[in-house]
């Protein structure tokens, strides 16, 4: 038998008509929210209510709704992806909240993540950082070598895999008091730096990705460790230290 029940909640949500408009926090009351519903389903329910009331629904990002795409991006009650650690917003459920709670919902805040509308932010700065070097150049003429033909120490393969688990959601930037993207870039640099296939372009990769990161207007990392705690994929600060080493070594070449 389900232990789900219905709760009534108050929502304080950032509303912003478009990128140029001045936004503000608006208050909504939402009744009969099932604690079995997901947080995004709760927002769907709010939007139904708003549409029925002839009001504009709240725009928010989502896609897979199973924690792997990195699209959802909400700052809930002062934390990226909400009160649970190691999860994305789409994995958050209303059973984490109590009847009568007031829930603050804001977009990820960063100069490099401008608000498009309401809770939707433009995270294409991450794409540009990736394009600056977050790849391995491969000759696709048909004479490629099977990746498994290159022996890789288990330890390195595991570390590379852990770094590659980054879904690029931007929670690290959102939660960092400095708006730094170093956990994201550190993960992307590390996933290649640890593998023999990535070493060929390692020098230019780290220099170009860090340059692009700085150009996008992200802040400077001060090692608070908040990014590591809030990352839904558990990306470690070890990746930032590795990026720093890679960058220093590349700078001296």
């Amino acid at each position: 038998m389900s232990s789900a029940k219905n709760i009534n909640i108050n929502l304080k949500i950032w509303r912003q008509k478009n990128a140029q408009a001045k936004g503000s926090m608006e208050t909504y009351k939402l009744d009969n929210v099932s604690t079995a519903s997901s947080f995004l389903e709760m927002l769907d329910q709010l939007n139904e209510q708003l549409i029925n009331d002839k009001k504009s629904p709240v725009a928010f990002d989502h896609d897979c709704r199973e924690g792997i795409c990195g699209m959802c991006s909400l700052y809930i009650n002062g934390r990226a992806h909400g009160p649970e650690t190691g999860t994305t917003t789409c994995q958050l459920h209303m059973r984490k909240f109590k009847d009568g709670d007031t829930i603050y919902i804001e977009p990820f805040r960063s100069k490099a993540f401008p608000v498009v509308k309401d809770l939707v932010v433009d995270r294409s700065s991450f794409d540009r950082i990736q394009q600056a070097g977050g790849f391995v150049s491969v000759n696709t003429s048909g004479r490629t070598i099977d990746a498994n033909a290159t022996p890789i120490p288990k330890h390195d393969a595991d570390r590379a895999f852990e770094a590659a688990a980054c879904i690029g959601c931007g929670a690290c930037v959102a939660t960092c008091k400095n708006g730094s993207a170093m956990l994201f870039v550190g993960a992307k640099v590390s996933q290649y730096a640890l593998l023999p296939q990535g070493k060929v372009e390692a020098t230019q990769r780290v220099l170009n990705m860090v340059r692009q990161m700085d150009e996008e207007g992200f802040g400077n990392c001060t090692n608070t460790g908040a990014c590591e705690v809030e990352c839904p994929k558990g990306i470690s600060l070890e990746n930032i230290a590795r990026m720093n080493r890679e960058y220093l070594a590349a700078s001296l070449k």
Partner: peptide, 12 residues
């Protein structure tokens, strides 16, 4: 620089 990287602060 870090303050400039987040022009709008979080309400919470």
């Amino acid at each position: 620089q870090n303050r400039a990287a987040r022009p709008i602060a979080y309400a919470k």
